[in-house]
Design a protein around this nucleic acid. Structure first.
Lengths: 198, 198
DNA sequence: TCATCGATTTGACATCCATCGAATCGGCCA
DNA sequence: TGGCCGATTCGATGGATGTCAAATCGATGA
């Protein structure tokens, strides 16, 4: 598990979904959707101890879902639905979901190249520039099921899912030092293993 | 914790959000959004043991988020985004969120009355029919912070959040046997306590 | 000043869960 | 048939978490 950067969007998403992954908290949220509610009130309605309500309110607050209005001796808590809606969109569209896998792992330049040359699973075209071509070749390499060795037919079949010209990709892998061929069977070369360790 | 009915929508929602509340599962989902991926492939890309991938795929499958395509020796898994989108809408609008609190607790008739006479937190009008009026009075009673006794000013202030004519509501509570008044202070009567135990 | 009440913290307990290694199952191919 | 490989299951382990009782804090009102 790679250490996430401080403002990791993944970390924020996970804490938010953790909030929603508990029936008691969902009922608390439902009770707070229309108006501010005070703690004891919530405790009575939900049917748990005030300490438990306080605990859940802290969790909701840490996720940024709470607006609180202190009017001693009461504190009225209300849920901030807009925050919830924004976050939930991150898993509503394929584009946003796809970002979840790459956002923390690759830099902006790499992401840009992938955006430009891939349409979902399909490789639109093979970049001409060396650096861009490397990014694309490595992305395709990452998709390959791990095996000790591959037959040419296996490689062709897998590459074809992304791009019809599997011969070129296969040759580029060899020329780029990602794979090596021996007696008709293909194996990952040192550079290829390095990519897969990323 | 009250035992939920077999097809409790709350239970389904919670299991779904539990799926999304884990960084590893989110990355698995991201990897499956464009095309089917086989298990070993996912294990290598995410960086966990195959057994762990299998565990997470079972969780995702139980939540109904998976489409699997067996092509021995591989099994290609893909995420069913439409299921995800549907479920996520349950926390996207105030109306749907509000249902979370009531869906499991009240029957259809009660829910209908609440829908008809409430606009969010506001009581639109006081029903004339006895049964409907009781439902509304009890709903308002449930919103009251729990105290041993209330001053008239306290009651007025709280009722006014929902309805301007607090005098009528207060009087109806007394006449309905929900509260009792003694020496200018109000207390919950037997029927009122019974409602709050619901 | 003291009593009251709502909110919070602390500590303890039970449960759930992610993870992995090892063992097992089930097709495939040589 | 035997070995290989992908997928799954099992058992163990460490960590996270929901819950509550009791103690504490903070502010109000008598």
């Amino acid at each position: 598990m790679s250490p996430p950067s401080p403002d990791d969007p993944m970390r924020a998403l996970v804490t938010l979904f953790k909030c929603l992954a508990d029936p008691t908290r969902l009922r608390i949220i439902a009770a707070m959707v229309d108006r501010g509610r005070c703690g004891q009130d919530l405790a009575a309605e939900i049917g748990v101890a005030p300490a438990t309500i306080s605990h859940h309110l802290r969790v909701l607050g840490d996720a940024g879902l709470l607006v609180e209005d202190r009017q001693p001796p009461y504190t009225f808590y209300q849920v901030d639905l807009t925050r919830l809606q924004d976050a939930v969109k991150a898993v509503s569209t394929p584009g946003r979901v796809r970002e979840l896998g790459t956002a923390a792992a690759v830099d902006d330049k790499t992401r840009g190249v992938l955006r430009a040359f891939f349409d979902g699973p399909r490789l639109i075209s093979i970049p001409a520039q060396r650096r861009k071509k490397e990014i694309v070749l490595e992305e395709l390499l990452r998709r390959l099921p791990r095996r000790r060795e591959y037959r040419e037919a296996d490689l062709n079949k897998f590459i074809e899912v992304a791009h019809g010209d599997f011969c070129t990709i296969r040759r580029e892998w060899i020329m780029g030092g990602y794979m090596e061929r021996e007696d008709g069977v293909y194996r990952l070369a040192a550079r290829g293993r390095a990519v897969l360790d990323t």
